[in-house]
């Protein structure tokens, strides 16, 4: 299976044949990502896929996520389909996908069953609340890291500034903001070279 991608396009640099994961690797890594993703699995995906496993470069992660943001459904679910499929074809996508959602679904069903009882338990609530705050810290740290890694061109900084101002400061809805900013950003990118 190691020649899967090379057979398609030998120039594709997305390949990291030296650490290409097998199906078990894919399943276990995405299972971990699902279990640790308090407040969203994006930050943990970055840590696992880029920093720990090296299956994607910093740049590939952001670019792939950028494409996944425009696909229907959760972006990290699409990201799992991408990473699984690039490495192990359709089975890879299936395995990564199931790995990502299986554990959270089981946990949430256990919690949702008699959820009123759980919600009233103050120890459980306090524990979950601190895990959520810790999850927030992980996400903030990754957001800072991604920003630091971004090429500091005026064009890029302006785009980040406009998005953050519109979404976080002005509280505008994400979809219309992106629909306006994305074509402009791509137009500027196309003029660059």
């Amino acid at each position: 299976m190691s020649g899967y991608l090379i057979g398609v396009d030998s120039k594709t640099p997305e390949l990291h044949p030296s650490n290409q994961p097998d199906l078990t690797d894919l399943f276990l890594t995405f299972l971990r990502i699902g279990l640790l993703g308090f407040g969203g699995v994006l930050a943990v995906s970055r840590i696992e896929l880029v920093d720990k496993k090296g299956w994607l470069s910093e740049q590939e992660f952001v670019e792939m996520l950028g494409i996944c943001n425009f696909l229907p459904g959760a972006n990290v679910v699409s990201l799992a389909v991408f990473v699984g499929g690039i490495n192990q074809g359709l089975m890879g996508s299936v395995v990564a996908f199931i790995g990502l959602i299986s554990a959270p679904i089981v946990i949430i069903m256990v919690l949702a069953h008699n959820y009123t009882q759980w919600i009233e338990n103050s120890y459980f609530r306090a524990s979950l609340s601190m895990m959520a705050s810790c999850g927030a810290g992980i996400i903030v740290a990754i957001a800072i890291r991604l920003f630091q890694e971004l090429e500091k061109s005026l064009r890029y900084l302006l785009t980040v500034g406009v998005i953050v101002t519109c979404v976080s400061v002005l509280g505008l809805s994400i979809i219309p903001v992106v629909m306006v900013v994305a074509p402009i950003a791509m137009f500027l990118e196309a003029r660059e070279k």
Binding site: G66, L146, S168, M186, L188, A190
Partner: peptide
């Protein structure tokens, strides 16, 4: 062009979501 054009948008959205989550959990 699509990949690189979307890069700063993706980073911006992640910063915004970090901001939102930090605010709601505080």
């Amino acid at each position: 062009v699509i990949r690189k054009g979307l890069t700063p948008i993706t980073v911006g959205l992640i910063v915004s979501s970090a901001w939102f989550i930090a605010e709601t959990t505080a």
